[in-house]
């Protein structure tokens, strides 16, 4: 049974790219375009992993992490931040809120990203 990955990304073009690559890698991909949707989908689909963008309209990625932490969902759900925000404090904050890893999109190709996820799904 394939693992369920929740891909949270507001930019369609980028989301489609990662969705494609994840699907190719045999993941079952659930998509969300903003923070609120992400939280809804987590409740609905119980994903095995969340790829979370930070800068999103309305409810942003940090808010999602805060909410997850509040619901005490973090220990069982690996959340990996996938963003182009490079501020140290944001990185620190995300990690403090329970993000397992922090990936800068332009640093890695989609296949490198998929590789990065593997250790969290075993």
């Amino acid at each position: 049974m394939s693992k369920v990955v929740l891909l949270v990304e507001d930019n369609d073009f980028i989301r489609n790219m990662y969705q494609l690559k994840l699907a190719k890698a045999d993941f079952s991909v659930v998509e969300a375009v903003d923070g609120q949707m992400a939280l809804d989908k987590i409740g609905e689909h119980k994903p095995d992993l969340v790829l979370l963008d930070l800068m999103m309209p309305n409810v942003n990625g940090i808010d999602v992490l805060k909410s997850l932490k509040k619901q005490n969902l973090v220990p069982g759900l690996p959340v990996i931040v996938l963003t182009n925000v490079m501020d140290p404090q944001t990185i620190e904050q995300a990690k403090e809120l329970g993000a397992r890893d922090y990936i800068v999109k332009t640093d890695l190709t989609p296949s490198q990203v998929v590789e990065k996820l593997q250790p969290f799904l075993k």
């Binding site: 980028i14 790219m17 494609l20 182009n84 332009t106 190709t109 296949s111």
Partner: peptide, 22 residues
């Protein structure tokens, strides 16, 4: 730099996928 990275992500990402034969 954030704004610049957004389109760059897609350029780099799709180029790599093209290369990988996706």
């Amino acid at each position: 730099s954030h704004q610049l990275r957004t389109p760059l992500t897609t350029v780099k990402g799709y180029a790599s996928m093209l290369q990988e034969g996706d």
